[in-house]
């Protein structure tokens, strides 16, 4: 979805930023968006991630990003708890991303 959206709408993206904090995702507020996503998954309260994102994109966008992060905390659970598989076609389509991010190391790969 990330690469599809970026390529279809002509926006640059470096998907490696998803795995590597040192990489610039090349989207506005990209580093701060990734930091907020990471804060969603860790259990330590870190309001600074939202503040830093709000400084770059504004408070409404930061809150919307927090909602997306929370939603994916949920999506990840319903997918992993029910064994939803990635189809062979989709896996082939995402082969490069899987390689770049090393996703084949993940437990459900």
């Amino acid at each position: 979805m990330l690469r599809w959206s970026a390529e279809t709408t002509g926006r640059p993206i470096d998907v490696g930023a998803v795995a590597e904090p040192g990489i610039d995702p090349r989207v506005p507020g990209g580093r701060e968006l990734v930091a907020l996503a990471r804060a969603a998954v860790t259990t330590a309260a870190d309001g600074r991630a939202l503040d830093r994102l709000a400084d770059v994109l504004g408070e409404p966008a930061a809150v919307d990003a927090a909602c997306v992060a929370a939603a994916f905390e949920g999506f990840n659970r319903i997918v992993d708890a029910t064994g939803l598989p990635m189809t062979r076609a989709r896996r082939a389509e995402l082969a490069e991303v899987i390689e770049v991010l090393g996703l084949h190391r993940f437990p459900h790969a």
């Binding site: 930023a17 989207v27 507020g29 990209g30 998954v41 994916f72 999506f75 598989p85 996703l103 459900h108």
Partner: peptide, 21 residues
């Protein structure tokens, strides 16, 4: 927030959770 930014958040959460799907 543009779709690409939304999906960046989605992908980063999923990566941190080691969610393959």
């Amino acid at each position: 927030l543009h779709r690409t930014q939304i999906e960046l958040v989605a992908a980063a959460v999923s990566y941190a959770n080691e969610c393959f799907y």
